[in-house]
Design a protein around this nucleic acid. Structure first.
Length: 588
DNA sequence: GCCGTTTTCGGCCCGACTGTTTTCAGTCG
């Protein structure tokens, strides 16, 4: 009797992607064709990147148009959504106990070693593996030794200590300390902070630093003995890896100057982008690796930078943020890449808290800080009255704040302060003040702060009701996720995106470092639906205003151009925009 | 298992480091 792997009624695409990943791993352990294994992982990645409703795509068979999903895997997904399982998975599960999969998360344990300890010693969990290691049984296995046994035990300890990834912002500061120490060393010419940091992923697994130099040994010596280093994992001529005291891994690669363009492309990734670019190089008769681009005879084609490398492959320059293999290579080939929004396009931000609610800086301090950053406007977004825990503004306080905004606007002109509010979206989708008070604001950010545990249909209905409210200008942190700690609420995002586009409501990229919500994968869907995005720092202190830079990273990863982002408008354009919008919505 | 400007078969990216090996397998990115 086959047991269900997922609940066919509630399984979402992330659940299905996880099952496909597990399938790939079990195939690997059972020694399947490597390309078949990769097909399942590729399908999982492709699935994660789609934004449309999975069930709809299966019903309409549109899922077959998604690259990496063919007839076979389509049938598996269809089976998962109807019966909760599929045949191949059932077969594999008989051969591979669940605990065996968990062993793969130990650094140094791959499919071959996992299979070996299972076959030879019957080990089928991390705990059993640890026990065998302590008893000295692992060292006697063929291909193993004392060192391998020790490494497995420390790998288990490390896995338990540091299970999570790092926020982009945390990794960024730690990485820059190391990067700054390395790039100034004698002999270092070119250098980048590569990997997922350069691609501005929302969370970071490890840090990749690349430099060019004629002699690498002294650089490696400095790197592996920095104060921040807790463990040296590997040390070689061109590559060394360390773990910092904070638990984050840092890789340093040293290449020759003429190899730098190729290496910087390679060490920026993503893996899937690289695979595609290499496949393209191969079709054009080249072999591409991190050291160069070679023809059949092994003759190198020099490229002085990444732009030249892309050009040789018939591609426009692809910004690092776009290198996720989500269509950027095709767009670069056809000359249809977007002109990505820049930090300098941002003329101001909305949704900032002040001491009127739970912020720690006063309204005038916040406005002054924004002006010092070179911004042309600043928008408030204190909490509304229901958010008592966060000092939400009573109607009286709203009027008091409005008076101060008016006063400061006279003093600070031509700098402009817009008076907004972050209104709670109540359980029934209503906003948090009577209409006459709502009408007194320049704009309204509507956000969910309570009752997260609604069903998908209830939550979607609630947020759509807020979007359809004529006073709503933006939806704050649209999914409510907190990175590395909490998933977003159950909401049908495509419905929300379509409703926002139809009602001229901006969706926010909340740039608070542990939110980055909307996710870049969905930002692109907003643009495709014809909607607009606003980048907001959700600042609670003057120094938080700069969080908008993280939001620009998300916007760029979501293929946005200047015109797609509300913050690129000038104060006078915004005044007209808000006024015209009110008129269309019938607000006097 | 997927895919197609080498298109329905035959290919699918490539190299560094470690540990165990007397020439290479496994893991990782």
């Amino acid at each position: 009797m086959p047991t269900r792997i997922v609940d066919p009624k509630t399984a979402n695409k992330d659940d299905i992607a996880r099952v496909l990943d597990d399938t790939a791993v079990m195939l690997e352990i059972t020694g399947a064709n490597p390309f078949r294994i990769r097909a399942f992982s590729n399908a999982a990645r492709s699935l994660e990147e789609t934004t449309e409703d999975l069930r709809e795509m299966v019903k309409s068979r549109e899922l077959l148009d998604v690259r990496g999903i063919g007839k076979g895997i389509f049938a598996d997904i269809e089976s998962l959504l109807t019966t909760g399982t599929f045949e191949l998975y059932e077969d594999l599960r008989k051969q591979v106990p669940a605990g065996v999969l968990a062993m793969l998360r130990i650094s140094g344990m791959g499919p071959k070693k996992v299979k070996l300890v299972y076959d030879e010693l019957g080990i089928k969990s991390v705990e059993e593996l640890e026990h065998a290691g302590r008893a000295g049984q692992l060292a006697d296995l063929p291909g193993f030794g004392e060192k391998t046994q020790t490494n497995i035990l420390s790998g288990i300890a490390r896995m338990r200590k540091y299970q999570s990834r790092f926020l982009y912002s945390d990794a960024f500061f730690q990485a820059n300390e190391i990067y700054d120490a390395i790039r100034v060393l004698p002999g270092v010419e070119q250098h980048i902070l590569g990997g997922s940091l350069r691609r501005r992923k929302e969370t970071i697994g490890d840090v990749d630093i690349l430099v060019s130099a004629d002699v690498s040994a002294p650089i490696m010596d400095v790197f592996t003995t920095l104060d921040q280093v807790a463990t040296v994992v590997a040390k070689g001529d061109t590559k060394s890896s360390v773990i910092l005291q904070t638990g984050i891994s840092v890789d340093l690669r040293v290449v020759k100057h003429e190899e730098f363009a190729f290496a910087s492309h390679y060490f920026t990734g993503s893996k899937r982008h690289n695979t595609e670019v290499r496949a393209r190089a191969k079709k054009l008769g080249y072999k591409l690796n991190e050291y160069g681009l070679f023809n059949d005879a092994g003759k190198p084609t020099p490229c002085k930078n990444e732009t030249a490398l892309f050009e040789t492959l018939g591609l426009a320059y692809i910004a690092p943020e776009l290198r996720e293999n989500t269509g950027e290579i095709e767009a670069a080939a056809s000359g249809t890449l977007p002109q990505l929004v820049e930090e300098s396009d941002i003329r101001g931000v909305f949704h900032c808290h002040t001491t009127y609610s739970d912020g720690r800086s006063t309204l005038s301090e916040m406005a002054e800080a924004a002006r010092t950053l070179g911004h042309k406007f600043f928008g408030t977004g204190d909490h509304s009255q229901t958010a008592v825990y966060a000092g939400g503004l009573t109607i009286e306080k709203v009027r008091e704040q409005r008076d101060e905004v008016d006063r400061l606007n006279e003093e600070m002109a031509p700098f402009v302060i817009f008076h907004g509010i972050e209104s709670d979206i109540l359980a029934d989708g209503a906003l948090d003040y009577p209409d006459d008070v709502l009408a007194s604001f320049d704009y309204i950010v509507a956000s969910i702060h309570s009752q997260f545990n609604m069903s998908e249909s209830e939550m979607t209905k609630r947020i759509v009701a807020a979007i359809e409210n004529p006073y709503t200008t933006m939806i704050g942190h649209p999914t409510g996720r907190v990175l590395l700690s909490r998933d977003g609420y159950n909401v049908n995002l495509q419905t929300l995106i379509d409703a926002a586009a139809a009602n001229e409501v901006c969706l926010e990229i909340n740039s608070y470092p542990n939110r980055l919500d909307l996710d870049w994968r969905h930002v692109r869907a907003v643009k495709e639906a014809g909607g607009a995005i606003v980048i907001n720092p959700d600042a609670h202190h003057t120094k938080d205003i700069e969080f908008y830079r993280y939001g620009v990273g998300v916007a760029r990863k979501g293929w946005l151009e200047k015109v797609d982002v509300l913050n690129s408008k000038t104060p006078s354009q915004l005044t007209k925009y808000f006024a015209a919008r009110r008129k269309r919505k019938g607000i006097s």
